[in-house]
Design a protein around this nucleic acid. Structure first.
Ligand SMILES: NC(=O)c1ccc[n+]([C@@H]2O[C@H](COP(=O)([O-])OP(=O)(O)OC[C@H]3O[C@@H](n4cnc5c(N)ncnc54)[C@H](O)[C@@H]3O)[C@@H](O)[C@H]2O)c1
Ligand SMILES: NC(=O)c1ccc[n+]([C@@H]2O[C@H](COP(=O)([O-])OP(=O)(O)OC[C@H]3O[C@@H](n4cnc5c(N)ncnc54)[C@H](O)[C@@H]3O)[C@@H](O)[C@H]2O)c1
Lengths: 217, 217
DNA sequence: TTATGATTGTGAAAAATAGAACAAACATTG
DNA sequence: CAATGTTTGTTCTATTTTTCACAATCATAA
């Protein structure tokens, strides 16, 4: 894993921390909906399946949010984390490859609750172009650069076959995309300033297989 | 991230290493198909977007596979890694939630090339039960325990809504599943001996959003 | 055959991450 | 109000992961 780090004031925080903060926020929202008003790092950590120190440590990169002897106000902390992660204003993204996985993601309703919204989807297959998925019309991949640039999109999700992934990523980058979530089972080599997160389901399952086989002996 | 470790002989190797080995194997197969017979850690690392030391170090946990001054025989290394990861014999898995994401995974053809095969899919929705997806008939979630146990499946993939994930995971565990890939945006609390890998796409994109916003300033 | 250059494998150093420990702050109870 | 118990925030310590540095090995070409 290439550990990219992000500046926050004077400190540097790893994206791993950011991902955890995001999952904290996710569960805090659930608590909020359940009417919980105050929570301690201990009980929240138990909910999250992590240690309470890790929770407090992660928060500490961004300042004190709790009250000693009491815990955290769920509402306040939710608001602070939302602001911190910039999850308040909607972030749009572009998706390439409106196939099986791509369609699922287009229709992935949870993204809305995260203020993440798909703004454009592209495909090179004539049978896919023009198709309406969940209200979004799939556009011609040829128009990707123009549209992405016009809309000012910064995040790209790659759901095209492996052999097309590199080229698609490059085109996205040239259109102003600076962060990519890649589902294709291949590594993308691209400008340093573009951040690439890979999710390779085959690799995930293969690793689990290894674990299973080890457990068997 | 809970860092689970696996025994190999006397050494302990983290699952992160295993995942990387899996991605090495993935790219080695591509090289093999392209007729490349010998490769150095340097050129392969460049292909993988990592450092050559990391590649060699990862391999070193399992023994020497290369020839000094020359490099690695692609064919041999592929075979060794395949054996090491146990990727030679097919590993079956069970999937819960044959919805949008679940269907995409059922139809995910690349898994076959990894010798990973879906053996059973379950859903609780009457409209989904009995449906044939890519030749596989979706079974009633009620029968999950029995079927999973009978088939001796060890890996479970969770594609059900968040609120059902915990219960589904527990039922999988009770049926003998010891490794779970969870796509639901919630943490699963379960017996220590069951390994849970989480893939939360919302969290991934939210982290990218943070990166994007940071880059803007 | 002998130098030269390339590349591996690994112990040791460095960096990053996680964890423990504890003082400071607050609430509560008597 | 004082004593006690709780919980945070943070420093310090331990562990894990990554990177460096280099001896050992091999091919090649003089
Ligand atoms: N199906 C899954 O569950 C799954 C899971 C994980 C990863 N993936 C990966 O995601 C990618 C897509 O998988 P899928 O199952 O949806 O395949 P798919 O064939 O259903 O979809 C791929 C789509 O990409 C389009 N495409 C091809 N080249 C393109 C280009 N240059 N520009 C724009 N669009 C292009 C195709 O027309 C097609 O619609 C693959 O790399 C696959 O390995 C799939
Ligand atoms: N759609 C995506 O691209 C996407 C991406 C990442 C994660 N996810 C997550 O994956 C999960 C599924 O997402 P989806 O978009 O496919 O939703 P979906 O509603 O299309 O599918 C969920 C399926 O689970 C079934 N189900 C519900 N309870 C069940 C139970 N107890 N046992 C068995 N089956 C049950 C439902 O009948 C449905 O068919 C959700 O947790 C979602 O957050 C989805």
């Amino acid at each position: 894993m290439t550990s990219r780090r992000v500046l926050t004031g004077s400190k540097q925080v790893s994206l791993e921390v950011i991902k955890r903060l995001s999952s904290y926020l996710r569960d805090l929202k659930t608590l909020e909906n359940n009417g919980v008003t105050v929570v301690s790092s201990g009980s929240l950590a138990e909910l999250l399946g992590i240690s309470s120190v890790q929770f407090r440590k992660d928060l500490s990169y961004f300042g004190p949010f709790g009250k000693k002897g009491v815990g955290y106000n769920v509402c306040t902390l939710t608001a602070k984390l939302t602001e911190l992660l910039g999850a308040g204003d909607c972030m749009g993204f572009a998706l390439a490859g409106a196939g099986k996985l791509g369609s699922a993601i287009i229709q992935y309703s949870s993204l809305q609750r995260f203020n993440i919204k798909i703004m454009a989807a592209f495909d090179s297959d004539r049978r896919k172009i023009g198709k309406k998925i969940d209200g979004l019309v799939v556009a011609d991949a040829k128009d990707m650069e123009t549209t992405v640039r016009t809309m000012g999109l910064k995040i790209g999700v790659i759901c095209v076959p492996a052999k097309a992934a590199q080229q698609v990523a490059e085109r996205m980058a040239s259109a102003g995309i600076i962060a990519v979530l890649n589902f294709a089972p291949t590594e993308i080599k691209i400008l340093k300033k573009v951040h690439v997160s890979n999710v390779d389901i085959c690799v995930e399952i293969e690793a689990l297989s290894y674990f299973v086989r080890q457990s068997a002996t």
